[in-house]
Structure formats: structure tokens, C-alpha cells
Design a binder for these strands. Structure first.
Lengths: 220, 220
DNA sequence: AGATAAGTTTAGGTATAACTAAATATTAAT
DNA sequence: ATTAATATTTAGTTATACCTAAACTTATCT
């Protein structure tokens, strides 16, 4: 069991997320953008992470996360998402308020704390944004999901996650009446601008632009 | 609102605790002992804390915490103790397991988090060790308390706190049948070694050495 | 292919927070 | 009032994690 610093955990988490999205080598620039830092700082860190064998690093050719690195990344993600559940379900945070706080809480080291928290929350499988919570071995239950924009007319499903979980986007969703867990039906799709009309929970009709619908993930 | 680093918060908390106990200037050596670090490191930190005006520092003559410093120290103590209540009451930690974890949790920055946690816990006034929880303005409800060793024969009271809250000491107390909140009566005091015989909750007779009894605080 | 652009790394510097060893100040003891 | 003991500070070093500026590598364009 290696000990990673906060910064190392954050970089590893970012690298994991980027490689999950793209499925190939992750570039220094992408990491710098995700971490809101400079490429030079990223190069420094990649050397450190490589020494700790949590990534494979070939200069100028981007990085791949190792199996061991994935394990650490998933532990951090597990902690982050469990704390998000806690904040929303127990402390009544709204789902757009939890991110920053969970980003701090995810680094608390105690293993027993996370085990007890998990138990206390009733072993949740998904966080408030609909993202799956890895179990203590790093296994994730993936849901089959599609962007709302790709569901055909009269297709139904349940909103299970969002791609862009920025506070602004989440607030916007709440405002128009969409939320994780909402049952939806696509009533109409406008050809020329790609916007969709959907029915939420069989009672509320709302419109969404192609941009928004592309960021809302639905389990069909 | 200044931002203090984790290390600065920890030093300030230690300085506050030591000055509360002794009521006068706090020495570099005392701080080094409390922080498990070297005097040279303490000197470094005192310069930094002095620059931030949270302590008054005269070289070679120890430090005094300022009013502003006290405010920050009490905030950290408030967070520490609220998290301890959470760990014991919600996650069923025993009172000797909470210290290390709370030492990490106390540095989480979100003010709204602490406010909501306080509410969720029902605005507790004392932590699991019986120590008072400062309110959001730093006000503490102090309980009048005496070491158990100084209570006279037939005197009664309630265990409200311990001076030495080390895990070993707390486990020992639990083992002999003492705990925070226990109602006690002093049955006998042995002259030559200072040990005491006490009755816990009107049903269990236990013995305590002078050392142990001196570390158990009783509200009379 | 050679020039330019884009991406990445290195070199050198800053701040935090620790350390050891040496120097200095204060306090206690004869 | 010196000396000795204790306490404290300074100087110099290390490690993390960031930065800017310059150098270098790879990719792209004509």
C-alpha cells in the first residue's frame, strides 16, 4: 500500500477520468487543462507518478494509467461519490453544491471511516449525479446509458447522469425541471436545430437545446 | 478572513490548548512536544504565525495567542469536536477511535458544511469526551469541573471529560467501566498511594490509581 | 524536405514545512 | 559573577508542488 499525496491523488483521478473518456494515451496538455495548472507542472508530476508505478510514461507520447494506478484512482472516486451521497441525503446539500466539498473530503485517509460511511448510507450504488460508486475492490456497476439527444421520438427512459456536472449546468437543469432519477419520454425532435421536447415524470413538458440534451444521460 | 494552512491551523490549536492549560506564555519546547516535531521547526512556524498576527511573538520569551488567533483556533476546535460527535453518534466509532480521523476532518474548509453538520447533529454542546463545542462565534459553555482525585469521600458527580484523551487511556477507562456521562460516588480514598474507590452508576465498584483519577474530570 | 506551429520538457526559481547541526540567548548553579 | 545547563534561534538542506522562460520534440503545412 503506497501513500499518495493529495496532489498525486488528484492527478491520478484526472488521468483516470480522461482515459476513460478517450480510451487512449492522455496528453500533458489535457491533464493541465483538467487540473487548472500549467503543462510544466504536469511534466513534474508525471515523473513522480511514474516513479511510483501508477502510470506508464513515455516522454512526449502521453501517459497510460497502470492497473495499480487504476486501483488508487477508483478508491478516490469511491470516496468522493460516497461523500456526495452523504452531503445530499444527510446534510441536504443540493446536487450542484457538493463537488468542491467532496473534492476535499475524498482525501481523508481512514479506511474504516469509508467502510462505516458506506454502511451508514446503505451501500449506495450511484452518487447524486447518477455516477456509479466503485466498491471497495474497485468494481463498478456500469449502467447502459445514452445521451438524451440520441433517443428517438416516443422513446422513454430515466435520467441517470450528466456529462457536464458544472454547477451552472446543474442549476440550469434543476430550473427547467430535470433531475437525476426523472422518468422521461421524448415527445418531439426539431430537425433544424436538434432541440427536443420531452415529458418529465408523465406530467411536465419541457424543451431542451441539442447542447443540453447531449449532456444528459438516459438509461433506456 | 485569512487563510491558514493545515500546519498553521494545527500549531494554532496546540498553542491555544497549551495556553488554556497554563494561562501564560507558551514555550517553543512545549509546542514542539505537543506537535511531535523539533524546536527548530517550531521557531520557523512562530515567525509565520506572527506575520499573520494570530500570535504575539517575542524571541526567547514564548508566545501569546491574539484575539484573532483565538478565533481561528476555536473554529478548528469546533470542527474537530463536531466531527467527533458525528463519528461516534452516526458512524458508531468508539470514543478512542475518533481522534486521528477528526484531526483530518477538522481542516475541511466549507463553512456551510459545518453549519449543516451542526444542525444535523442537533446542535450538540459537548463532544464524546465531554469537552465543550464552541459555537460559530467561538463562545464556549464551560462546565465547572474537578479532577476525580480531588473529590472528597462520599462526594458525587458525573464524569464529563478526561485530561489525557490518548487512545490507550480511553481504552483503559472503558475497560474498567468508566465513561463520559457516568454518575460516580467516591467511596474511599487510600492515604498512602492516593488511589480511590468509586461507585459507577450506583451499581459497579471500581478502583483507580491516583494517576488515573487525576486525569478524569468530574462535574460536581 | 524544410519551415512553422503545437506540444512537451528542462532549468531555474518560489513557498511551505520539515530536518540536522551550529550558534546564540536565557536560566540555574556553584 | 562566571560557568554550566537548558532553551531557542539561525543557517543550510530536503521534499512537495507550483510557476515562468527557454529549449527541445513531434506534428503539420506548403
Amino acid at each position: 500500500m503506497k501513500t499518495l499525496t493529495y496532489a498525486e491523488e488528484n492527478y491520478l483521478k484526472a488521468i483516470y477520468h480522461i482515459s476513460e473518456a478517450g480510451k487512449k494515451g492522455v496528453s500533458t496538455n489535457d491533464i493541465a487543462a483538467a487540473m487548472q495548472t500549467k503543462p510544466a507542472s504536469v511534466s513534474d508530476m508525471l515523473r513522480k507518478l511514474s516513479n511510483k508505478k501508477v502510470i506508464e510514461y513515455r516522454k512526449y507520447y502521453g501517459v497510460h494509467i497502470t492497473e495499480e494506478g487504476k486501483k488508487y484512482a477508483l478508491q478516490t472516486i469511491r470516496k468522493h461519490r460516497l461523500w456526495e451521497v452523504f452531503l445530499v441525503e444527510k446534510l441536504h446539500f443540493t446536487w450542484d453544491e457538493v463537488h468542491e466539498v467532496a473534492d476535499e473530503l475524498e482525501h481523508i485517509k481512514s479506511a474504516i471511516l469509508i467502510q462505516r460511511l458506506d454502511e451508514y448510507l446503505g451501500y449506495p450504488k450511484f452518487d447524486p449525479h447518477g455516477d456509479p460508486i466503485p466498491d471497495e475492490y474497485g468494481d463498478v456497476k456500469a449502467r447502459p446509458r445514452l445521451p438524451l439527444s440520441e433517443i428517438e421520438i416516443n422513446g422513454t427512459g430515466q435520467i441517470v447522469a450528466v456529462k457536464d456536472s458544472s454547477a451552472a449546468f446543474l442549476r440550469y437543469l434543476d430550473k427547467v425541471g430535470a433531475y437525476i432519477g426523472a422518468r422521461i419520454k421524448v415527445l418531439d425532435k426539431v430537425e433544424f436545430d436538434g432541440s427536443v421536447e420531452i415529458l418529465v415524470d408523465n406530467k411536465k413538458k419541457i424543451f431542451m437545446s441539442r447542447e443540453v440534451a447531449g449532456n444528459v444521460l438516459v438509461m433506456v
